[in-house]
Design a binder for these strands. Sequence first.
DNA 1: TTGTAGGCGTTATCAC
DNA 2: GTGATAACGCCTACAA
Lengths: 343, 343
Amino acid sequence: MKRPTQMDVARLSGVSRATVSYVLNGQANDRVPKETRQRVLDAIAELGYAPDARAQSLRSGDTHTIGLIVPDIRNPHFWEHAEGVEQEARAAGYRLLLSDTALNSEYAEDIFKDLSRRRIDGLILMGAFIAQSEEARNTLTMLLKRRLPIVELIDHNVDYEVDFVVSDYRAATEEVMSYLLSLQHRRIGMIYGVATPALAIDRLQPYQEGLRAAGVPVDQELIATCGPTIEEGYQAALQLLSLPARPTALIAINDLLAVGVLRAARDLGLDVPTDLSLVGYDDIQIAQYLIPRLTTVSKDSIRVGREAVKQLLARIAEPDLPYQKLSIPPRLIIRESTGPAPV
Amino acid sequence: MKRPTQMDVARLSGVSRATVSYVLNGQANDRVPKETRQRVLDAIAELGYAPDARAQSLRSGDTHTIGLIVPDIRNPHFWEHAEGVEQEARAAGYRLLLSDTALNSEYAEDIFKDLSRRRIDGLILMGAFIAQSEEARNTLTMLLKRRLPIVELIDHNVDYEVDFVVSDYRAATEEVMSYLLSLQHRRIGMIYGVATPALAIDRLQPYQEGLRAAGVPVDQELIATCGPTIEEGYQAALQLLSLPARPTALIAINDLLAVGVLRAARDLGLDVPTDLSLVGYDDIQIAQYLIPRLTTVSKDSIRVGREAVKQLLARIAEPDLPYQKLSIPPRLIIRESTGPAPV
DNA sequence: TTGTAGGCGTTATCAC
DNA sequence: GTGATAACGCCTACAA
């Protein structure tokens, strides 16, 4: 039960391999007579023949494959991007080769090397922190030299030139700050749950500046740096909320952490938003169903994913394009987790 | 800046292509002198040469690629499986080719065809409902005839022979039922949010049987069939909870739907668990952080994913193995969303 | 110890 | 209109 090849089809239909190829590639109309054509098609159907993509690819050069590297499969935020990526890639006839770095930069090098060997047509990188280790960076640099089209999603705080699609949270965070300040919050904390310090700088900086602009000193004690899991967000929140002078508002740099914060507040007997206001980021699917519904900064993740693929395809088609930066402005969605500061 | 080939390496190091290949494949130890070997390695490093996986694959037959088909990227449940799949596949040197059917069986045929052309080494199918349409089934059948190793995850309610790893929810659901009944619940409803009717039969049947065994008639009105999104779960719950004789307990066939139920209860001013007990399935990551913490049936999704890959690799290595069925028993985790029936 | 040659399955270029 | 033939990059049996 070996897989049939073009040769088998040719034999069965009594023509040469070339003819089969012509029929397959649509050039048959003017060259191959209808009858022959039909015989070939019948043979294909009978054998269940399907051309070997590896051979096609070897010959043509393209693999119609896009590498997708995700830092952490378990964070819903990434899947929402992934969905957009998948939709757009599929529509263009591309498939996704998925890798998870598991936030572990040691894996990254392996992944890059492997993708390189597979001769993928392009690469989508979610989160620049993937290329942390020396070796990973070197491998990535090599891919860039080879002019592998690469698009970065989410962050772009690296020194190499690639296309990227980001949602710059700066403006939105300024909005968050003036919103919270207008509600009379003065002790505003931040759950800075990042895999890499530089990661959410677009949230940290405007946060600090917003405070300063309002004449509120930045209190380092109110900035809890922790890892990116819910549990870590939960623990960080417990700590912040147990402070003698407890914050009246908290900004979590993503919604997953915010879920942990909600839980921590409840465990301490604090009501959100009466005792504590909470703002998240990303607007993951469940955000609007949480109790209370989460006020968050929404970024239309699916669209970001789609745009990334569009950029990638554009560069695949035209490698010499100038590098593109697309910034999709997120917006603050006020729901129920924020309210006036307690008196 | 074309990619270097083995030939380029050979030229640069002044040896033949074969020698390069020997060095690469480790057969160099006894054949190629150390010095020549080093020259080749240097050339490889200098050129940044990496073998072309397509060519290797064309020659060797295997692609070291596993297809992963997910019914709905946005459901966290699938991603937790995916994480296990990814871990185990990576460890064995395989990559994942990801496709999302978007719960749309029309896509399925395309995907199967494409994967077939790509000559993947194996396929992991999450949820049997993927093969709904006639064409999709035919294509799948063809793959099976070709003896493509396939492992099914989550469900196995189809008529073809494949390996599968399932979590049979039957026993756990019986446990759920006796637990709820012991709490004096009699009006127990079900949020049956499925893409395909047969999908969660392992939850529906024991639910009905459990009721009957306790002498409680099955009330069709309490079984809300809806789609698999949170919003649909939310709407279904609103409806069920607005019934004149409202259920005192609800079983949602997955945790995502349960999030919608929680929200619906709150919107109707119902307290969980005082007024309503709620049980979900899957134990997704956030389940234990929800308010209230969700009582759910946990299935160790990561492990299920890993086992699936193990089975797949076993079959790839030994195609004539008898078909395997692995059932990983889920267990009921009682948290805070369930309590005694209101009097 | 190293080099040569054939073949994996395609497609495209030529002759016929 | 159709049929050989070369080439994509690699691996390996075999020859030198």
